[in-house]
Write a protein that binds this DNA or RNA. Structure first.
Lengths: 208, 208
DNA sequence: ATTCTTCTTGAACAATGTTCATTTTCGTAT
DNA sequence: ATACGAAAATGAACATTGTTCAAGAAGAAT
């Protein structure tokens, strides 16, 4: 048998269906939320048996984790697409990009952060690492804005800032507990970033 | 029959068991997480039938919601216990109290924020209101620190600040995706509050 | 064509939420 | 005290959903 899956006929079909399953699951999570995702629904929608889902992902959580993995990737792609020319604008761009992604894919993002493993199965390392990396994207522009600070300090600072942004957005987007009215969220977020930067001693025109 | 439940013998027993059920559920959530809470476990631990749980709470989510309701109450109690003498110290106290509660009751707090209703049953209004109230507790001290600002502005500001704190803490406490190392969390949080206040133009000694 | 490997299937099982007819409990009226 | 009836408790039965696996189908290798 060929090692490379894409080259064998069998492998192509398998991969094709794997993609289909993921796509179906993602769509379901995005529209109806993680809680109403069911194996049988996914299998039926994909036109295959329940067992095939298990062949492909091992256990049902595996499918969810795969969707989540791709969610971080999509998020990261969006965040890294933010122009890095001006560090201050980049920070705002990052916050804004996160807000945009969270708005458009609220349920997917929730699935990423709220999904708990069954029993005490370990949470996949790679997803963890990817989320960390995404949250570290504020590091580079902050370093440029704060050249005199201890780098370790800035590293923590950037993750804190991103965590704060995450908190504001994730609570702000909950229609349930509207911490901040959605319309205002965008500008408020920008204001928040500015305020915090001001607190860090960064004033407009301070960048390298 | 007596209207007041506490006064009838039957009512006393009923209430007693209700309390027991809640206590068992809370303990289970706190130690093993929301996902592994099962009706049968709760019923068995309480020494009653499954049906009784349903008699008491209507549906299983009802029990969870009751626990969550009491979680917000406990959180609020802890937050309102923070001394209000000095507004700056109060803000730090609130952030610290939240961190303390989140550390001691990580799973309970997660249950509060992560629990999703089945299908599209509406999220209980009262819990929502209580969470909002808790998040508004930074309002009073901020008003004192920023007497010249538009009150509506300060209202939003306070909820944003609390949301930010929430984000930092909830991500920081996830062992899964350690955004900030736990040991440092406390001092970093204080630093965050200070930085943000500085950005708002508040310097030490600025309070009324 | 034959054989071997791999994948697919879906029935069966297991775990869990939910219902409800029956039984039990218990306050109240006689 | 007894009988009656409302309220509560019960748990078997059911519904839903995750999981397994023996048997069969499909594809690759020779």
């Amino acid at each position: 048998m060929n090692i490379v899956q894409e080259e064998s006929r069998r492998g192509r079909k398998k991969l094709q269906r794997r993609t289909l399953l993921i796509e179906i699951a993602r769509r379901s999570i995005a529209t109806k939320g993680l809680r109403s995702l069911k194996v049988r629904d996914v299998a039926e929608a994909a036109g295959c048996s329940i067992g095939s889902v298990y062949n492909e992902f091992g256990y049902f959580d595996g499918l969810i984790l795969t969707v989540n993995r791709e969610t971080v990737q999509a998020l990261t792609a969006r965040l890294t697409a933010v122009p890095a020319d001006d560090p201050l604008r980049q920070l705002h761009g990052l916050a804004d990009a996160y807000l945009g992604f969270a708005t458009e894919h609220a349920n997917l993002l929730r699935s990423l952060f709220e999904h708990r493993m069954e029993d005490d199965r370990p949470f996949p390392e790679d997803i963890l690492a990817m989320v960390m990396d995404a949250f570290a994207l504020m590091h580079a522009p902050l370093v440029r804005l704060l050249p005199d600070r201890d780098p370790d300090d800035v590293a923590l600072l950037s993750r804190m800032m991103f965590s704060a942004v995450h908190g504001i957005i994730s609570l702000g987007l909950e229609e349930r507990m509207v911490a901040v009215p959605p319309e205002m969220l965008r500008e408020r977020l920008a204001q928040f970033v500015d305020t915090h930067l001001a607190g860090l001693g960064v004033t407009r025109g301070n960048q390298v």
